[in-house]
C-alpha cells in the first residue's frame, strides 16, 4: 500500500527503525523500508557482518552509510545472521532502486519465529506508525 508517497507493502513486518521483515519458510529476510531509503538518500555502503553473528532484538548489528550519515541497523528479532546480500557491497544503490527486492539486506534464522508478531504489522498498525513518523520527521 502507498502512504503519503511511501510504498509500504502490507504483507511485511516492520521494525520501528524502518527495516522490513518478510517470512520465507523458517527464515526471515530483512531490508530498509521505502520511508528510510528516501530519508537517507543515496546509500553508499552497507556492512555485511559475518555469517553466524548472533543477533539480539533491538541491538545494532551492522552499519549503513548514506554519504551524509553513518547509521545503524538494529536486529528485529533474536536470532542468527545466515546470509548478507553481497551484491550490496558493489551496488549499495540497489536499496534505493528496489528496497523490497534486489535491495534486501540480510537473512536471519530467528530463535523464535513468534517474535515477528512483536513487530509492526497489519494495515492499520503500519498506517498509524508511518503517519506518526512522517509527522515526527516534519519537526524543525
Amino acid at each position: 500500500m502507498e502512504i503519503h508517497g511511501y510504498q509500504m507493502p502490507e504483507n511485511l513486518y516492520y521494525e520501528k527503525n524502518h527495516y522490513w521483515v518478510r517470512i520465507e519458510g523458517d527464515i526471515l529476510v530483512m531490508g530498509m523500508d521505502d520511508f528510510a531509503q528516501k530519508m537517507a538518500g543515496d546509500i553508499v555502503f552497507v556492512k555485511i557482518p559475518f555469517v553466524g553473528k548472533k543477533l539480539q532484538t533491538g541491538k545494532k548489528f551492522a552499519q549503513v552509510e548514506s554519504g551524509k550519515w553513518l547509521g545503524k541497523v538494529y536486529a528485529p528479532v533474536n536470532g542468527e545472521l545466515i546470509e548478507g546480500n553481497e551484491a550490496l557491497e558493489a551496488d549499495p544503490e540497489f536499496i534505493n532502486q528496489d528496497c523490497y527486492g534486489t535491495g534486501w539486506m540480510y537473512k536471519i534464522k530467528p530463535v523464535d519465529m513468534g517474535e515477528v508478531e512483536n513487530l509492526i504489522h497489519g494495515t492499520d498498525a503500519i498506517d498509524k506508525w508511518l503517519l506518526a513518523d512522517i509527522e515526527k520527521y516534519k519537526e524543525h
Binding site: 530519508m39 537517507a40 538518500g41 548514506s66 551524509k68 550519515w69 515526527k136 520527521y137 519537526e139 524543525h140
Partner: peptide
C-alpha cells in the same frame, strides 16, 4: 536533534 538528515545539518 531533528530527525531529518537535511534538517539536522541545516540546524
Amino acid at each position: 536533534a531533528p530527525k531529518r538528515i537535511d534538517a539536522f545539518y541545516r540546524k
